[in-house]
């Protein structure tokens, strides 16, 4: 006799469409999206959220898009209420909406932003950091001295969904990333109630050596394979062959 009716969250993770992978992502939710600018964006999932028709999202991402691409499409679609990021740069879509007062922007130091996610995923509600002491980041925060140095209390940052991209993914959700496309993605997966990964390449369980796994599948809940990506380059910098 079976004692359980419903399978656990790690029973079957592979979804056959982006829409299915985003099931349950609703208006008003907090969504973390991996990538450093456009590098390592889950392009199909980002487009899928716009297509889903949700709104009033709180978006947590380092840059919130660039040059009209990536998460800038969310800003243009008017589906974001608040952005938590570290750097706006020349993201005109974000600047214009912030100036118009249609989007609230919270800027965190980059290391604090990612550590807040790490803490959330590790069951730590808050932590002390030296970053931001004596600056506007300190405003409204508890300051405590340890061994003669001052530190700020920062809170963990959780999300309803994390939308990330990985280079190689097995059916259990073990991930490998390529080069600097890793950035925030594995940490975001740990901080979210539901982590969805867009896989460049889906492989069978066992195809990735246990020692080579960058993010264990315990943190991943849904997988959708997407083989084609635009992968825009923000600043193409090269040197000439034969030169210095």
């Amino acid at each position: 006799m079976s004692v359980t009716a419903n399978p656990g969250r790690h029973h079957h993770k592979v979804r056959d469409s982006v829409a299915a992978a985003l099931d349950g992502l609703d208006s008003g939710m907090t969504v973390m999206v991996g990538g450093f600018g456009l590098c390592g964006n889950a392009e199909a999932l980002i487009a899928g959220v716009v297509a889903r028709g949700v709104r009033d999202l709180t978006l947590v991402s380092n840059n919130a898009g660039a040059i009209g691409k990536g998460l800038a499409t969310w800003l243009r679609a008017g589906i974001v209420r608040k952005v938590v990021c570290s750097y706006l740069g020349t993201n005109e879509d974000l600047h214009s909406r912030m100036a118009a007062g249609t989007i609230e922007v919270e800027v965190n130091p980059q290391g604090t932003l990612v550590e807040r996610m790490r803490a959330a995923g590790a069951g730590i509600p808050a932590f002390y950091t030296p970053t931001g002491v004596g600056t506007v980041v300190e405003d409204g925060k508890e300051v405590k001295e340890f061994d003669g140095r001052r530190y700020l209390l920062e809170r963990a940052l959780h999300a309803d969904f994390a939308l990330i991209r990985a280079h190689q993914v097995d059916r259990f959700g073990n991930l490998r990333f390529y080069r600097t496309a890793r950035n925030f993605s594995p940490v975001m997966a740990t901080a979210a109630r539901t982590a969805v990964v867009e896989a460049d390449q889906l492989v069978e369980v066992g195809a990735i050596d246990p020692d080579d796994v960058h993010l264990p599948g315990i943190y991943v809940h849904r997988i959708v394979e997407v083989r084609d990506h635009e992968d825009p380059i923000e600043f193409r910098t090269v040197r000439q062959r034969g030169g210095a």
Binding site: F36, G40, R179, T180, E234, R236, R241
Partner: peptide, 29 residues
């Protein structure tokens, strides 16, 4: 070198770069 640039290998200024022998990649945390 021109033609060797890769969109998933960039620096913090989002410029295409390379990685040297002995180099490593890791997450933001």
């Amino acid at each position: 070198y021109e033609g060797d640039e890769h969109p998933q290998l960039i620096n913090a200024g989002k410029q295409t770069v390379t990685v040297l022998p002995g180099g490593s990649t890791f997450d933001s945390a």
